[in-house]
Write a protein that binds this DNA or RNA. Sequence first.
DNA 1: GCCTAAAAGCTAACATCATTAGCCTGTACG
DNA 2: CGTACAGGCTAATGATGTTAGCTTTTAGGC
Lengths: 183, 183
Amino acid sequence: MSPSAVIDAALEIVDAQGHGALTLASVAARTGVATPSLYKHVAGLAELRALAGARVMSELAQELTDAVMGLSRDEAVSALLQTGRSYVVKHPHRYALMPLDALHHPLTADAGAKLINVLLAVLRGYGLRGAAAVHATRCMRVIMHGFASLEAAGGFGLPERLDDTYQQLIDMFVASLPKEKIR
Amino acid sequence: MSPSAVIDAALEIVDAQGHGALTLASVAARTGVATPSLYKHVAGLAELRALAGARVMSELAQELTDAVMGLSRDEAVSALLQTGRSYVVKHPHRYALMPLDALHHPLTADAGAKLINVLLAVLRGYGLRGAAAVHATRCMRVIMHGFASLEAAGGFGLPERLDDTYQQLIDMFVASLPKEKIR
DNA sequence: GCCTAAAAGCTAACATCATTAGCCTGTACG
DNA sequence: CGTACAGGCTAATGATGTTAGCTTTTAGGC
């Protein structure tokens, strides 16, 4: 066994039973090991959650990176937001693992930075600098996180198509970006 | 004591120590009662959380209602979004109590409906109907929830002014609404 | 004023967890 | 061949949620 294998098991449990079911006991059961043995690989439940969250964030960052490769500006923004949502739809339970303040925690800071960097890279195509870039990044995050967390939690009850709502948000955001690249 | 008094104590604990500190043991200590005695008023921890969440949602709905009274359209939307955020800034820990899928749970459905109704009322000024009203409501929710949850969780690390980011989001949303009332 | 029944409290007990301490074993490496 | 350590184990402790069953308080009717 290895720390990574423990995280694998943790993610399997989360995928199957939701993030509330992630306990050291359940991970131990799944890996066929006594609970205290997990401490040889992981410092405790808090660290395991952080590591699992970091794993998810890295995976998401990778998918986003792949999705925007070769695209720029509106196309890239749209692809990024769509891909972010589709990841959450694919693994609804994983979303809750990602810490919202990843940068504040050493175990998740790297993964968090990777994620933010994709957003920044996409916005670079608009020539946004300094404060403007920060605000735009935050807006994008708000939209992606707001929608994804609501969708993952089953927060949208009505039957109207979620795709349409999300597209409307994307259009809204894209419309707020500069039409000409700022030089 | 009464169920309501138990919820009061729960909210005091959450305000002071965060929603992770909300346990039956801590509520019992604060109300000067043995833990099992709480079951005379509340069915268990899950119900207490739901009831506390409903209380918070009602309170927020009331503040939002007060804030938009006498306003319409862009002014009302702006006031609603600003007031929503300021509630979260005032009581950062309470935000995490509100269930995202309030309508699915009988104990929180009423409060959830109250909240949604404020949003719908404000959007009525634009003459939005049917699916369009649903999408617009969702967009507003995404923006308010996305921003508030990130802010409450300390998810914005950089020093740029959050007020500016939020204003940008509000402008973005307002710009997406019809300029003339649809009749 | 008293009596009874329900409301509200208590203690004891149990299950589940996380966590720590201390022990055992196999294996890689000198 | 011996030793050190990685990785596993059992036992024990302390929170916590929850249930059961008993006691006390209280409110209302007689």
